[in-house]
Deep mutational scan, measured.
Amino acid sequence: MDETGKELVLALYDYQEKSPREVTMKKGDILTLLNSTNKDSWKVEVKITVNGKTYERQGFVPAAYVKKL
């Protein structure tokens, strides 16, 4: 869990989004878990840094590609 009590997951593999509802992640990324009720895909939040500014983006990733921490 992070400092706000949200559950975290670790990306086990790289994943490139295939639709606007998904998010891209790299192996080793730590993501905030938002919903894990679907056995196939979990909703997560990723933090992306562009030019020194951090943005948050929500979307789905394959459940088999992440592990709860």
Rank of each mutant, 00 (worst) to 15 (best):
S36E: 12
T4P: 13
F60N: 04
P20G: 08
K27E: 04
T37E: 14
Y65C: 15
S41W: 15
P62E: 03
D2G: 14
I30R: 03
L33K: 02
E45S: 15
K27T: 05
L12H: 01
Y55K: 06
D40I: 12
D2K: 14
E7A: 11
K53C: 12
D29F: 08
Y65A: 11
K43W: 15
E3W: 13
G28F: 04
K26R: 12
D14R: 02
A63V: 05
E45H: 07
D2R: 12
L33A: 01
T54H: 07
T24C: 07
Y55L: 09
N51D: 13
W42K: 00
L34M: 06
S19E: 09
G28Y: 03
K47D: 02
F60Y: 14
Q58E: 08
L12M: 08
D40S: 10
T37S: 14
A64G: 09
M25D: 00
T49N: 09
Q58L: 05
V66Y: 01
K26P: 01
K39Y: 08
V44S: 00
V46Y: 09
A63R: 09
Y15F: 06
K27S: 05
K67R: 13
K39R: 11
K27Y: 04
V23F: 11
T54Q: 10
Y15T: 01
Y15G: 01
V50E: 10
K27Q: 08
G52D: 06
L8M: 10
L8K: 11
E45Q: 13
T4M: 13
A63P: 06
A63K: 06
E7N: 11
P20C: 11
L69A: 03
G52V: 02
S19G: 11
E22P: 06
K18D: 05
Y55C: 09
M25K: 02
G59E: 01
S36D: 15
A11T: 05
K47E: 07
L8D: 01
I48Q: 07
K43G: 04
S36K: 07
G59V: 05
Y13S: 07
D29R: 03
M25I: 15
D2W: 14
A63L: 02
I30N: 01
L33P: 00
L10D: 00
P20K: 09
G28I: 04
V23C: 07
L8P: 03
R21K: 11
Q58R: 10
E22M: 04
L69C: 13
Q16A: 11
L33M: 02
E56R: 15
N35S: 12
K68P: 08
A64P: 06
R57T: 05
K67S: 09
K67F: 08
P20V: 09
Y65M: 14
T4K: 12
Q16P: 04
Q16R: 10
V61I: 08
A11W: 04
Y13E: 09
R21A: 12
S19A: 07
K47G: 04
G28M: 03
K6A: 11
A63S: 14
V23Y: 03
V66M: 06
T32E: 06
E45F: 07
L33Y: 02
E17S: 15
D40G: 08
K26L: 06
K39D: 09
L33R: 01
S19Y: 08
K47A: 08
T49S: 10
Y55N: 04
N38P: 03
T49F: 11
T32C: 10
V66P: 01
Y15K: 01
K68T: 06
Y65T: 06
W42E: 00
T32L: 14
V9I: 07
K39M: 10
M1E: 13
K53N: 11
F60P: 00
G28K: 02
K27C: 07
E22G: 15
Y55E: 09
K18C: 11
E22H: 04
K53T: 12
D14M: 05
V9M: 03
Q58C: 08
L31P: 00
S36Q: 09
T54F: 08
K6G: 11
K27N: 03
T54S: 09
Y13I: 10
K6L: 12
M25N: 01
K39F: 08
Q58F: 06
S36Y: 07
K27P: 02
K26T: 07
I30D: 00
G52S: 05
N38G: 09
M1H: 14
